[in-house]
Design a protein around this nucleic acid. Structure first.
Lengths: 359, 359
DNA sequence: ATGCCGCGTGGGAGCGGTCCCACGGGGTGA
DNA sequence: TCACCCCGTGGGACCGCTCCCACGCGGCAT
């Protein structure tokens, strides 16, 4: 059960497989193309890679041969020679159910995919399970020779990014671990988004605005809380700590936090929840306490997720530009791959308030 | 814009990249291990692959050397030699927003991932865009030398699976194209699930049970409609065609179909929608018509998706064993890879009725 | 005319594994 | 004692590309 003392190869993966009866459908090789075109291998390689140092005659001959043979270069062989795989791993913690069912993951992933395939790169999806597996991951990724790694949902104490850095594997994170993240990362303007939400509540005349935060060891959660505070200060209000309750980004956590807030401050007239899911937990808690939404208490969430549209009442929420975030991650990673060090920036993308009926 | 006449290589992907400044962190090679252990390369290879024909002395020496050097075999080099990549591509049509935001995709993918990594295989995620891209895909996948392909959301007229079969690439589908799918595939017992739903409605005393179907060129949609019919016949009722309206698996489609049904049969007292999303569209249509759910009209959906839990009232729905389906797909594909032909079966997994408040 | 430069060009030498053939040595049977 | 086996073992020959060096050839300056 416990990991072996030595990092000995795990047998499951390495045991020789029984006679893979590979139906050997061999595709034409670069050699075949060279022969057919009556040129050397070098020339074919040059044509394929778009080198300018090829005569028009040779190039034409090669291109014809390629077309006739239906040749497609073998990426594996190329990778072995170039020490480059044109492959990027997307690492997602398996535990984060949340990520999958929300548009968060899907939006980012399609942005990533678009940005990557446009550059001829492919995406390796890696769901990591337990901590041990995650520990092995760095070596594993190095063995894959992936050109880079994208990581979602990194926690503050996650060491994987550091280990990747040691191994000189270009890495870009979705979100950051702390406020001075050393690695390249892309995130939404969480603070600004929270500010938008709270301003909206204040503009509607609400005066006792509470907030349900995420776990405060997460940067997103802190940033959204900061935004909440800033908006209050902007308006000349003082931040009252008993209007702040901590949740954990789950529905149940939202319910509990809402109950707590109502107990502490029966006079509250608005709530900014740091996620839609927590907001969806807050709604029944409010109902139980006999408060109408938005009549008695206005409510705003964050993420603009599926539940926001289907909850009753439809939830006003802060939207993150997910697909763009994915695109930005891809771009940043490609930069870093092309030139080390150049992609180690933090990119912040603007958020937007989507007004529905809850506030 | 239009595809070139000849399959000439697309430049974007093939242009030589500018001096990849690969920080050459070379990992130890099998050769290094052999030298250190004082044995030949062949012996190291045998140890790694768990061959029994190695003396205990050699094995121990090699294992020590591996541990000391932190050696991890290079998959790329191995692939080149074995003509096997231990990689499987998961092909998902990019257009299917639906897939991503619903637990459908996420459930299946994690099952797939679990089943695959357990066997030491990795997952290449391929989102396909337009038809042209999809056309190129077969060749592309062959060039990747993926060991197999998993496809989600195949339409009846999709030719990609056939082309993969021509190329002798093991393939497994999520769902089937028609009722005699030639390829290996895994699906939920859609008919049975629909039957469960309709039986539940009938058992509750409903007598005019309508249904909102999916697009009937899709096998899932037909299967669910069949189940609806069967349940009615079982109960000795005749299937009335004006109680059947076609939707398209979208919310808006559900709304329209519901409107249509109410117009045709104001007396209906129950609806089985072939997806939760369509059911979520049906709800407002019912409200508009002044019907209470479930008071006047009972409603059941399919998929047990996120919206089912958050809609008002919470939706009774049919759940598919998504993770198991993913696992089954992985298993089937591994079978097919190990022995061609053995994995070309159809696996059907049972569904389950999740009773909430709408029926 | 001779030298020199530079442009294509061919092809050897890897990249890091696997596969398999041939070989040495100890045990067995005649 | 000698032939015969069989078990481990070493290492050459690939897998299909890229990289780069060296070479031939035509054109220009001397």
């Amino acid at each position: 059960m416990s990991p072996a003392e030595q990092p000995q190869p795990r047998s499951t993966a390495d045991v020789r497989r029984p006679t893979l009866n590979a139906v050997d459908v061999r595709r034409p090789t670069l050699n075949a193309v060279a022969a057919r075109a009556g040129v050397g291998r070098g020339t074919v390689s040059r044509v394929i890679n778009g080198s300018p140092k090829v005569s028009d005659r040779s190039r034409a001959a090669v291109e014809r041969a390629i077309a006739e043979l239906g040749y497609v270069p073998d990426r594996v062989a190329r990778s072995l020679a170039t020490r480059r795989t044109d492959t990027v791993a997307l690492v997602v913690p398996d535990a984060e159910n949340r990520l999958f069912s929300e548009p968060y993951f899907s939006g980012i992933i399609r942005g990533v995919s678009a940005g990557l395939t446009g550059a001829g790169m492919q995406l390796l999806l890696v769901l990591t399970g337990d901590a041990w597996e995650r520990d092995r991951l760095a070596g594993y990724l190095a063995a894959q020779r992936v050109d880079g790694v994208l990581m979602m949902a990194v926690h503050g104490d996650d060491t994987l990014p550091d280990r990747l850095e040691e191994l000189a594997v270009p890495t870009v994170l979705a979100g950051r671990r702390g406020d001075r993240e050393g690695l390249g990362h892309v995130r939404a303007d969480n603070r600004g988004g929270a500010r938008l939400a709270v301003r909206h509540l204040l503009a509607a005349g609400r005066r006792s605005v509470a907030t349900i935060t995420g776990p405060l060891d997460m940067d997103v959660a802190r940033a959204r809380l900061d935004g909440y505070r800033e908006a209050l200060r902007e308006a000349g209000l003082t931040v009252e700590e008993d209007l702040v309750a901590q949740g954990d980004f789950t529905e149940e956590g939202g319910r509990a936090a809402m109950g707590e807030l109502l107990r502490r401050r029966p006079d509250l007239d608005a709530v900014f929840a740091a996620s839609d899911v927590m907001a969806s937990g807050a709604v029944p808690a409010l109902r139980t306490a006999g408060r109408r939404v938005p009549g008695d208490v206005a409510l705003i969430g964050f993420d603009d997720s599926v539940v926001a549209r289907h909850i009753d009442p439809p939830l006003t929420s802060v939207r993150q530009p997910l697909e763009e975030m994915g695109r930005a991650m891809a771009a940043l990673l490609l930069e870093e791959i092309a030139q080390r060090g150049s992609g180690k920036r933090g990119v912040v993308l603007p958020t937007e308030l989507v007004v529905r009926e809850s506030a």
